[in-house]
């Protein structure tokens, strides 16, 4: 065999090998992606199949009955919605204010680096620790008792790092030139933030807030010691009342109530899942919508 032929054959072998590796790598990456999607589909599918038949208007709108083995989950839905609302009321202004401070005002010094570090750490704290913290600070020290107020404040603190990070990102994505133009037109720093930066960061802030809240809405641990009631025969009258909430109700149904129809649990799980999912979908839709409308 002459050297030229041998070189061609070697190159051919190498090319085949590269081709094979490429195929294997592609297959592995695809399988990994598929598994992720599969997990999501299985969870939702299982809950949908087992829970959907149990859903009814009555299930959604009546109080639990017969030791929670029958009846509906109305108070838990209302409690969760109220918690979500209150959490937004506390977390959104504080989170946005902190993000504005960090992006528009803070200089790069040790204190602000410390603040940033603290916020990053806040997002790494396990949710049960938030629960205990809320119990110590809001329930006991502030004397709010086990109440909507204490629960919402606890969830707010848990949601803050998400809102701050998302808002910071949204504020930073507003072009620097808008700020310069505003200043050149005689605007003060605050006027610039208020009129030339914040309005254009609102979509990003909203998206981040909704995602943060949807995570908080599904948490059990933070509300375990701060607000959640095993069973309350009436809806909460004030923020100082205990309330039922979907995640904790699901936990109770699954572990504390013997001889309960399984579909009742899955129905509850489905309602919680739909609530959280619809929040996420809302966030995605809002983001897509504003991205299309964006003009710079």
């Amino acid at each position: 065999m002459d050297p030229a032929t041998r070189r061609v054959q070697a190159a051919d072998r190498q090319w085949r090998r590269a081709e094979l590796i490429q195929r294997v790598a592609f297959a592995l990456l695809f399988i990994a992606t598929l598994l992720v999607a599969l997990a999501s589909v299985l969870v939702m599918g299982l809950i949908l199949i087992r829970g959907a038949p149990w859903l009814s208007w009555e299930f959604l709108t009546t109080m639990p009955a017969r030791g929670m083995r029958a009846g509906g989950i109305f108070p838990a839905i209302v409690g969760t919605l109220e918690l979500i609302g209150l959490t937004v009321v506390f977390a959104l202004p504080m989170g946005v204010a902190a993000a504005i401070y960090l992006t528009e005002y803070a200089r790069d010094n040790w204190m602000n680096r410390f603040i940033r570090l603290a916020i990053v750490n806040l997002s790494g704290v396990p949710s049960v620790v938030y629960g205990l913290f809320g119990l110590g600070l809001f329930v006991i020290f502030c004397r709010f008792g086990t109440s909507l107020l204490a629960g919402a404040l606890t969830l707010a603190i848990m949601t803050l790092p998400v809102i701050i990070t998302a808002s910071e990102e949204a504020l930073r994505s507003v072009p620097q030139s808008f700020r310069e133009v505003s200043h050149s037109l005689g605007a003060s720093r605050w006027q610039t933030v208020r009129h030339a930066v914040l309005p254009f960061a609102v979509p990003g802030i909203m998206t981040g807030t909704i995602l943060g809240i949807s995570r908080a809405a599904g948490e059990t641990a933070p509300i375990l010691f701060t607000v959640a009631a095993f069973y309350v025969p009436r809806l909460p009258h004030s923020v100082f009342d205990q309330a039922m909430a979907l995640p904790y109700h699901l936990y109770v149904l699954s572990t504390q109530i013997p001889n309960i129809p399984q579909a009742h649990r899955y129905g509850t799980a489905l309602v919680l899942l739909l609530l959280v999912l619809s929040l996420n979908v809302l966030a995605v839709v809002l983001r897509a919508r504003f991205r299309r409308k964006r003009q710079w």
């Binding site: 030139s177 808008f178 310069e180 133009v181 505003s182 050149s184 037109l185 030339a196 254009f200 964006r294 003009q295 710079w296």
Partner: peptide, 11 residues
């Protein structure tokens, strides 16, 4: 007052 290098209308 100042006019910048690029046209920078606010949105």
């Amino acid at each position: 007052g100042m006019v910048f290098a690029l046209p920078l209308p606010l949105p």
